[in-house]
């Protein structure tokens, strides 16, 4: 059976276009990557509400802060590695400390910028954004969810970070599926172990679920699209009811989703946890598929992690 493939950045572009039609306060900024990030889909339809700031990410975030102060809902858009890294102080001190209504979109997150190599592979953005007070961090799993997340962040007050991927990945959620910021989606129920994932790798977790089922292992699959605020209720229920957790994210293993889950569990319900991600290293160039195999982001790797965590139960 073939599955439809789209990059989550397309969902961002579609979400922006819909917002353009429904919310006149939505303004989109980009830093010379509008075609790549899909913000040009908005720019083509609403040129008066699109501003290219040039290759100046710090200025873009500051400009977005000013637009928010003027009552607008700005979406500051560029590659994840540049906005979350280079403009971190602007996001921290101007946007988050002042609790401004700025939306930040980081494209080409995770290993999806494969061929560009380590400079362009954003693996630290989730941790960098998660540590900031007032910030929301959302990592959509497919293009449909990405569109919903884009529209949803315009409807809440405060700083939000959205992370998108470059490569086409499976579209496995449906338009009618429930989506709410801060509410995890349990995609498969299971009682032996819970796999908590964010981003396109959620699909690998679903494939792992089927392989585990054949082995007689019942895995709960949780799509934790909102890394912050974490849906603590769903995580604690998973720990209570399965007794073993695997986390996976296309990011450095420290400080991201796995860290958030571990911090919660160690205080409330200590159970064995296997954290999957990039193991404290920079990657290299390669296709996203090659990198996924080499660095452990496939269903097979998740199955292996589940076996490890079950052995520790």
């Amino acid at each position: 059976m073939s599955i439809k493939m789209l990059p989550t950045r397309d969902g961002y572009g579609n979400g922006l276009v819909e917002l353009g039609a429904t919310n006149p306060d939505v303004i989109v900024l980009d830093a010379d990557l509008a075609k790549s990030t899909r913000s040009d889909w908005f720019a083509n339809k609403y040129p008066d509400r699109f501003f290219d700031i040039g290759i100046a990410e710090q200025d873009m975030v500051g400009t977005a802060a000013g637009l928010a102060l003027g009552g607008k809902i700005p979406f500051a858009t560029t590659y994840a590695v540049f906005v979350a890294g280079r403009a971190w102080d602007q996001i921290r001190t101007t946007v988050c400390y002042s609790d401004l209504n700025v939306k930040i979109a980081g494209a080409h997150g995770g290993i999806s910028a494969g061929g560009d190599g380590a400079t362009h592979q954003s693996l630290e953005d989730i941790a960098l954004m998660r540590v900031l007070p007032n910030m929301h961090v959302i990592v959509p799993c497919d293009a449909i969810e990405a569109k919903k997340a884009t529209i949803a962040v315009a409807g809440i007050h405060g700083p939000c970070y959205l992370r998108f991927a470059r490569e086409a990945t499976p579209v496995f959620t449906a338009e009618e599926d429930f989506f709410a910021i801060g509410k995890a989606n349990v995609l498969q129920n299971g009682s032996d172990v819970a796999v908590i994932a964010c981003g396109p790798v959620v699909y690998e977790a679903l494939l792992a679920h089927d392989q585990l089922k054949e082995m007689g292992i019942s895995a709960r699959i949780i799509n934790m699209h909102t890394v912050k605020p974490l849906d603590e209720e769903v995580v604690l229920a998973a720990a209570q009811e399965t007794g073993a957790i695997v986390t996976i994210e296309e990011a450095q293993v420290y400080g991201g989703l796995g860290g958030a889950v571990a911090e919660l569990l160690v205080k409330n319900k200590p159970v064995p946890v296997e954290m999957m991600g990039v193991m404290d290293t920079f990657l290299e160039c390669g296709t996203p598929e090659e990198l996924a195999v080499k660095y452990g982001f496939t269903a097979k790797d998740i199955v292996a992690a589940v076996k490890r965590v079950l052995a520790r139960k």
Partner: peptide, 21 residues
């Protein structure tokens, strides 16, 4: 209007609010 203290950021913010105006 906005918290400040990390230098170099005010003019960008002024630009944004001026654009909104």
């Amino acid at each position: 209007e906005v918290s400040s203290g990390s230098l170099g950021q005010g003019l960008s913010i002024a630009n944004g609010v001026a654009l909104a105006a």
